[in-house]
Design a protein around this nucleic acid. Structure first.
Lengths: 340, 340
DNA sequence: CTGAAAGCGCTAACAG
DNA sequence: CTGTTAGCGCTTTCAG
């Protein structure tokens, strides 16, 4: 260790240093390090520059570059809850991968849903000259757009705000509900119960609509008495067990994996085997749960990674949500395991 | 909508614009917007500047500022898996909150454990003049440090590399194991089984050491035959059930919550009630699982949020890991629920 | 083919 | 108290 403390702090080799070492001008260096198209640089000069770069360990200063070009390579991601759920992480992951792919870098901020923090976060991103902002929530819902968001290009991820004029990317709840139901139908079930959440949300109405449409399309018909309300957690699924059993259903589509997990418990207590006696379908594909229940739970995945990735694509103008909703709906694919 | 497309793209009001509008120089503007200590600015001038700022909607350009000051406000976080687990998100969250608190901004990158990506990520961060880098893994382990990391200030989070000279922040596995065991001891148990993982890791040895020391300290003594090997997932806990039962233990400390979840299943099949017939203690406090098992699982929490936060504190020199290990161990607190 | 020079938006002495 | 003036590291015409 030559330096004191831990700081290997930037001896900062600049372009000028490289230029001097290579015996050329900074303009030339700039051209070779950026592989400028229109710039015809002599083989000899180019070689000398490259050698100098290697020798000195030169690295561009992305900030200076941004300043001089006037265009930044940052994309901001403000989330209401990075951590409350395993899901949020996937959104970050998808956004980061996609941003990276296009040469952008992600600036993240967590706000815990606090409006003041939210505004600060957005302000900070604006000061950093972000190209745009991804505003995401950890579960699909309608939001009221923070005022500050309008000062830049923004796209909503896993949330939406009708009439705001903002583009958004959300999971296709209806298609998801339909898919889940179709899986059960395909296994031969005709009497399919649906334990739905009592919380009003796009998930509640969308999944129900999907369930209904799949049933109808299969000529089975929708039976109101087969849908059971429940809080969207283990406790709710457990509590719904006897009613579901009493309905004579041979399969049950649960609003989410946690409900399914509770139902598993209830079913077991009633001595029912899954899937022999009754099939169970979840929703969300919450890994820690779904993949490890016994039997592993068949479910439908919430495409969080894709939401994040699609968010940056929309922001960069690579993809365009259809008018008039300006919502890009991304599919929720079925995950087959052993509960059907 | 006045502008075409979605771009409210930076009309960019600069300091010069403000200066002109306020009839002062840019230096004056700089002083008032930064509330410079030593700068005595007349009340009148200050007011005019503030008005101009408000009127024009001026916002600092953080990048230009950085460039001129030579010191950036970025902290990089490179993670091997942002999303694979609910945990990683908490590290980001903690790091982000703490960084923010000190006026820093988090730049995140996910590498999926891919070395090439890792180096690119680090290079990118260096180009952005980060103040330093937090290198984190999603489970506590020893790593080999990417070469590039040595080119800046770095601290390891949830991992370590003895002899690398790098400071790290890790969970205190031993204290965690001790705490878990003590909870069981406090409930009056004397014959306490331990289902440990078969995977060598700081968690494996640390939790065992803690279990052992708690037992010894309580005068109960360590009994090798009470520790059962298991893969660290539901399946392992389930499989260990009969052996555990045969041992006559009245309580069992599981290597993690997932193992506990599997054990719950096994115990139920054997007709044992928790905690009446046998007490169960987990580890990790994996929310989706622990809080919603029936009965809710008592466990010990892995302090991911704190790891992230402490990581930035160490990076900023606010906290200093003790030599010679250079490891800052953060406590794993017990979470009491109803399985004991 | 290559170099000089003018900025990008802001800060920091240093003069007045 | 406030304005001038150099840069920070890089890009980008525009000459040569």
């Amino acid at each position: 260790m030559s330096t004191s403390e831990h700081g290997k702090h930037t001896p900062s080799v600049t372009m000028r240093d490289v230029a001097k070492a290579a015996g050329v001008s900074v303009a030339t260096v700039s051209h070779v390090v950026n592989d400028k198209a229109g710039a015809r640089i002599g083989a000899e000069a180019r070689r000398r520059v490259q050698e100098a770069v290697a020798a000195l360990g030169y690295r561009q200063n992305a900030l200076a570059k941004t300043l001089s070009q006037g265009t930044s390579r940052f994309i901001g991601l403000v989330a209401d809850a990075i951590a409350t759920t395993p899901f949020a992480g996937q959104i970050i992951h998808g956004a980061q991968d996609e941003a990276w792919k296009h040469g952008y870098v992600l600036l993240v901020a967590n706000t815990d849903g606090n409006t003041a923090v939210e505004n600060d976060a957005i302000a900070m991103m604006l000061e950093h000259q972000v190209h745009g902002i991804l505003y995401s929530t950890w579960y699909h819902r309608e939001i009221v757009v923070p005022e500050a968001l309008h000062q830049t290009d923004a796209v909503l991820v896993d949330c939406f705000a009708d009439g705001s004029g903002l583009r958004s990317v959300v999971p296709d709840e209806e298609q998801g509900g339909r898919t889940a139901t179709e899986e059960l139908l395909a296994a031969g079930h005709r009497r399919i119960a649906f334990i739905n959440t009592t919380t009003p949300s796009p998930a509640q109405s969308g999944r129900l609509a999907g369930y209904r449409s799949a049933l109808t399309a299969a000529g089975v018909g929708f039976d109101e008495s087969l849908v059971f309300p429940s809080e969207p957690a283990q406790e709710g699924g457990y509590a719904a067990t006897s009613r579901v059993l009493a309905s004579g259903a041979t399969a049950v589509f649960c609003h989410n994996d946690r409900v399914a997990m509770g139902l598993y418990d209830g079913l077991r207590e009633h001595g029912r085997r899954i899937p022999e006696d009754i099939a169970v379908m979840g929703f969300d594909n919450q890994d820690v749960i779904a993949a490890h229940l016994r039997p592993p739970l068949s479910t439908v995945a919430l495409p969080h990674y894709e939401l994040g990735a699609a968010g940056v694509r929309v922001l960069l103008g690579i993809e365009e949500p259809p008018a008039p909703s300006l919502q890009l709906r991304v599919a929720c694919p079925p995950i087959q395991r052993e509960s059907i």
